[in-house]
Write a protein that binds this DNA or RNA. Structure first.
Lengths: 189, 189, 189, 189
DNA sequence: CATGAATGAGTATTCATTCAT
DNA sequence: AATGAATGAATACTCATTCAT
């Protein structure tokens, strides 16, 4: 990549980050381009889809969130590690205005968005889930994607509600430990 | 209400119902009016706000869902009644994915929507929650609105995922079973 | 006219008067009808054109203004009588929001408006002009309609400006007395 | 400015000029754009506000009118120069009747319009007024803006009427000729 | 006579995306 | 590669006027 191209990409990324914070991920392309001091064409060249730009902007945070999992896993007990990581995840999503809505909009521009966010985080959550599961603290049959997307959806709620609902979800994870007790408590399932 | 007016209102309601299912709640006014065979002015006369139309369309389903609570409560055990009712609720919402995001969009048009949906259902869920709570089967500190909105948010997932997540939520609702793991790690929760 | 019809007309007139003061002469028909407690159809029956309603509302003021001319003529000197009457006229027009604009709009509804206003006032101004003219105080060749419409147009300006311009007009009326002096001062005209 | 952009601007200006003459300044944006053979977006890019377009269209005429003042001032006697310039001004406005009412409509779109028109003409009229005033031919206390706007308002009348009224205004401007009638009746005016 | 329901034309403005320069 | 000009579809909402009830 040529030096000037790189410079442009960086400028766009910077501008988009600000714009997303101020106006949300729906901020018009022109506005972002203007802030970055580039033409819209340039922006499109590097980020053909809005989702590309969005995920690029949040890439660092995403990676940091993913990486945090290992540290948490080695510091806290499985359940607490999971809870703390989900809190990270919730905060990551909740502070991005319009992000959750965009993820569930049917606009083709945002189509790949969910995957972009899910991909780097999947192994992280998998690790935490496996730890807890191996320790017999949670049911073993939970799909990471269910949780990743479910929690993301819950981020539509206000912060306090989201936190309460996520806590409930975690409690639900634990309430059905593998083995006879589970079967006993919830017959017919 | 004049006979012809009534006829028009019904036609609009019918058209809107179809439209909302096909194209979502964002369907242009003109289109709905055309489907109903009326002028846009007529539609506006009866439903000045988009939210009015949306809630009118779903009013019947909402009421039916709300009424179902009592019957379920007297037929099934508290937890099962709750689960079955939530299943109703999920089914009600699942066909209306655009609706959920509309509710959380910041568009002023949809501002009153959350309340319109919550209002008739709140007492219904409250009843079921109280029953289970009084029987000591679930924790007593759950807000109906949290659950109503939380489950609604989860309806953004695909059907299977939604069902799994809602099941998890219900599991989380249930009192932490007496036993070392849960009580020990998270006392007072 | 039947008693109830008369009642309706009065109610409409009353409502329109208020409406015109509050919102200007452009106030929607429906609003006026609603204020009067009648249907729009009723309003249209009695005042098919907006101009009909407007002039009906101001009829009394118009007549009062017209009648004032005789009194002024017999109380003041010709010029002062004229000035005072024009001040009346200006006030009559200036306080009617949107009236002047309506008079000059090309909307067919307002087409007859200028005439409605001019008609009753023409003789009044004619009287005053003739008095001054006969006394040799103003040039004798001034058309009442020119002045009526010219002053009306000047009412588009703000109050102070209107007054200054009307004063200038009156001064202009006087500056060209019939006879040799006039010819001398403005050769070539 | 790119060649193609320039071409478009010119086309729009041309189209708008025609449109304003034919249909008035209210002519729909779409129509003007269509006449110019450009998209509405293009029109908006160059003239974000309707007032921008209007003043751009008349800019040339306005400037020409303003410039004429100096020539007239050096060719004719003060009063005649003034009269001739006002005739220019009247001619300029007479074809733009909708414009005058637009200027006084309370529509925010046209808010800046009065200033746009007044600004370039103010110095021109000032010059002529000062010349006449210094020569003792007219009263010295006349505001340019009063006259500019007053004459504009009078342009709402038909051509002949406008001319007569403007002539009257000019007559009013002239110092009250020495003589009993005027001086006696209205001393100090 | 009165009512008020129905009609539906009319328009500004935004913005994603393309493509000529 | 970059630019940014051009495109033009898409949509809500108002209100005068008519006419069925």
């Amino acid at each position: 990549m040529r030096a000037d191209a790189k410079r442009n990409v960086d400028a766009v990324l910077e501008a988009a980050k600000t714009a997303f914070t101020m106006t949300g991920v729906h901020t018009p392309v022109r506005e972002i381009a203007a802030m970055a001091g580039v033409g819209t064409g340039t922006l499109y060249r590097h980020f053909p889809l809005r989702a590309d730009l969005v995920s690029a902007v949040f890439r660092r945070e995403l990676d940091a969130c993913a990486e945090a999992a290992a540290a948490l896993a080695s510091t806290y007990e499985p359940i607490e590690a999971l809870e703390r990581w989900l809190a990270h995840y919730v905060e990551l999503l909740s502070t991005k205005r319009g992000l959750i809505t965009a993820m569930h909009s049917d606009a083709p521009t945002y189509e790949s968005l969910t995957e972009c966010f899910q991909d780097p985080l999947r192994p992280a959550l998998r690790l935490l889930l496996d730890n807890a599961s191996r320790a017999g603290l949670i049911r073993p049959d939970v799909e990471t994607d269910d949780l990743l997307q479910g929690v993301a959806a819950l981020c539509l709620l206000n912060t306090a509600q989201t936190q309460r609902m996520v806590a409930l979800l975690v409690a639900g994870l634990r309430n059905a430990p593998p083995g006879p007790p589970s079967t006993a408590t919830r017959p017919g399932r």
